[in-house]
Amino acid sequence: MARSSIIVIGASAGGVAALRSLAAALPNALSAPVLVVLHIGAYRSELPALLNAAGPLPAKHAEDGETIFPGHIYVAPPDRHMIVADGRLRLLRGPKENCARPAIDPLFRSVAESYGSDAVGVILTGNLNDGALGLFEIKRCGGVAIGQDPNDAAYPEMPRSAAEHVALDYCLPLAEMPELLVELVDRKGKVVVMPKTSSQLDGQEPEIINGQIFERPLTVTCPECGGALKKFEVGSIVKFGCHIGHSYTAEIMATAQFEEMEKVMRAAVRFLNERAEFCLQMAEHNGVAEPDASNDWHAASKQALDRAYKLRDLVEQEWLTPETSHRPVLAPDGSDRARFRG
């Protein structure tokens, strides 16, 4: 089996006790980093301190952009997805996945993408099924997929889902995992990479950037009411209509969509400006009485203003508008002489 250069572990309900037990049995000379996601939401987490107290490996909350070192445990901090990109840890406040942030799947996907067969994924106790898709990606890319024996887990749903949807290499009690993980990171051999699925072979695989999936939207929505639009073709005319009754030709749809997008982005600029002003007022309120708090409010104000400037610059850039640049130009007599703008 190939030398596995990274271990990723996902857990939810019952995970604190399981992770402490695992950390207590890992050696201080472990030749791979250990990345951990526990479903904690936006709540304060003491997990690194608990893991430090439990075993010999140093544990800490991950920091954005830091380098990953063997023999260290990195824990996803509250309200941030943790992924691996270009050999470094990244923290993202992206959309929740499986109602969780941090979630297990983003980390596992990014590790599958970055490490391939040099990855070991582990799913421990927990409810529902976060982690199953990410573990599948690790397995598909040639990595090692491990699940806690559901009968051994305090909450068996998560490891059971992993076993149902992934061809696990190992399914075993928690007590047997430390020895297995040490063996995996020190052993060499051959790993058979799972073939891509049919949807991936026919070009339908979603784009993955920095561990995040960017799927094509399921539909296009109405700029007026937000309802789903259906595309029709009437002769050579393409039109879109929603069930409320709003309808657009393709060109008018493109213009209406662009105007709505610009309105939303300018509203975001306004909100950022207002946040900057609010934070500035709070900084002035704290003043010299609470200098640390005042500095934090000043920093938050500056951050909001910087982002407002960046977003405003983005809105005001030139945009490609094929709906107008390729529209026929009518002659003075009103006839279409197949001349095009642009």
Rank of each mutant, 00 (worst) to 15 (best):
M1W: 11
A13P: 04
G15F: 03
A17L: 08
L19K: 07
L22Q: 04
N28P: 08
L30R: 05
S31A: 15
V37R: 02
P48S: 08
A53I: 12
A54V: 12
G55I: 12
P58E: 00
A59W: 01
E66F: 02
P70G: 08
P78V: 14
R80S: 14
A85W: 11
R88K: 15
P95F: 07
E97C: 07
R101N: 04
A112E: 03
A112Q: 02
G116A: 02
G126L: 03
G126W: 00
G126C: 04
D130W: 06
G131C: 11
K139D: 13
G142E: 00
G143K: 01
D149A: 11
A153Q: 02
Y155R: 03
M158V: 13
A163P: 03
A163D: 07
E164P: 03
H165F: 10
V166C: 13
V166H: 01
L168S: 04
A175P: 01
L184A: 15
V191Q: 09
D202A: 13
G203Q: 13
Q204L: 15
E207Q: 15
I209C: 04
E215M: 10
R216W: 05
L218N: 03
T221L: 15
C222H: 05
G226S: 10
V238W: 00
K239C: 12
I252F: 09
A254R: 09
A256Y: 06
Q257Y: 10
E262F: 05
F271V: 13
N273F: 06
N273A: 12
E274C: 03
L280H: 05
A283K: 03
E284W: 01
H285R: 09
V288M: 09
P291L: 12
N295Q: 13
D296E: 11
W297H: 14
A299Y: 05
A300Q: 10
K302Q: 13
A304M: 07
L305R: 09
E316M: 11
L320V: 15
E323T: 10
S325H: 10
R327D: 06
R327P: 12
A331W: 03
D333V: 08
S335L: 07
R337P: 05
A338C: 00
R339W: 11
R341Y: 06
G342H: 05
